[in-house]
Amino acid sequence: MTTQAMPMTAHPDPLLRPGNTNCAGCGMSLGLHWIDEILGSERPYLVIPACCGIVTAGAYPTSAYGVPTAAATFASAASYATGIATVAALNNEHHPVICWTGDGGTYDIGLATLSAAAERNEDILYICYDNEIYGNTGGQRSSATPEGVVTTTTPRGKGERKKNMMAIMAAHRVPYAATLSVAHREDFLRKVRTALSTKGFRFLLMLSPCPTGWKSEPDQSVELIRAAVGCGIFPVFEVFDGDRYVINVPRDGTPIEDYVEKQRRYSGLAADPSRLRAQIDDQWRMLERMIHSGRPHV
C-alpha cells in the first residue's frame, strides 16, 4: 500500500466524517484524516476515554466516527482496549485496536492503565493527541502543559515542566513509540504505517494544536507545529524497543519566539524565551544521550 495511491476517502465511511463538531484548526481533524489514509480499507476499533475526541463522536445523527467506537471512562481506555484486543485475538480477528486519547487521559488519570497495558505488551495502538490542556472541561492544566503556560488552574503560568511521556513509554520497552507532527505529512504517514504493521504495544504522541486552549489562530495550526518542530520544543523522533532512538526531523534553529508568540497562552512568569531555550537544549541533550547509548538502529 502506498500513500500516494490512497485517496482521502478510499472507503464510503471515513474514520472522521465531515460535519463533525471539532473546532476549526483542531489537530485531531488532520490527524484522524491522515491515519485514515494509512488504514485504507482496514477498519479499526476505536476506544476513547473522556476527552474532546469523545465529544467528536457526537450525538445521533451527527456521530462523527465511521468505525466501531467505544467510549470508555477517563481512566480506562487502555484497559478497555486490552479487553477488546484479547478477545479479538481469541476470535482470530485482526482489526487494529486504537486508543484515541487526549493528554489528560494519557499523562494523568489514564497513566496507570496505560503503563500496565504497555508493560504487558498488549496488541494495542495507543495514540495521544496532546493539546497540552484539559480542553473538554474548560482549559485546566495537565501534566502535559508546558511550564509558563496560563490555564484556568495556572493563572500565573504553570510552574512545572511538561512530563516526558516518550521517556516513560520507552522505559516500558514497547516495540514502537514515536512522535507525530501534523506539519510533516510523509513522516507522519510512515510512522502510522510502521505502528500499524508492528505487533504489540505501540505508542504515538501527536502534538495537537488547539486554537481554543492555545489562544491561537485556527489557520496557523500547522505552521505552529512546524515552528514547534523547528525550534526543537517538540522533537520528532521514534524509539524501537525502548532503546533505539532515531531523530526524524532535526531542529533547524527556528527561534522559539516564532512558536510562543503566536499563542497567547505563553503569558506566565516562567514563559521566558531564554528559559524555554534552555529547556529545549536540555531535552535534546537527553535525546542525544539516548541515541548514543542505545543499540544502533538497523
Binding site: Y134, Q140, T153
Partner: peptide
C-alpha cells in the same frame, strides 16, 4: 480534578487562593 459540572469549584478555589490564604491543587 476537572469534571463537568464541578470544574468551576476547582477554578474558583484556584482564583481565591492565588493570592494566599489557602491551597488549591488540581
Amino acid at each position: 480534578y476537572p469534571i463537568t459540572p464541578a470544574s468551576s469549584i476547582l477554578t474558583g478555589f484556584v482564583r481565591v487562593f492565588h493570592a494566599g490564604g489557602g491551597i488549591a491543587v488540581e
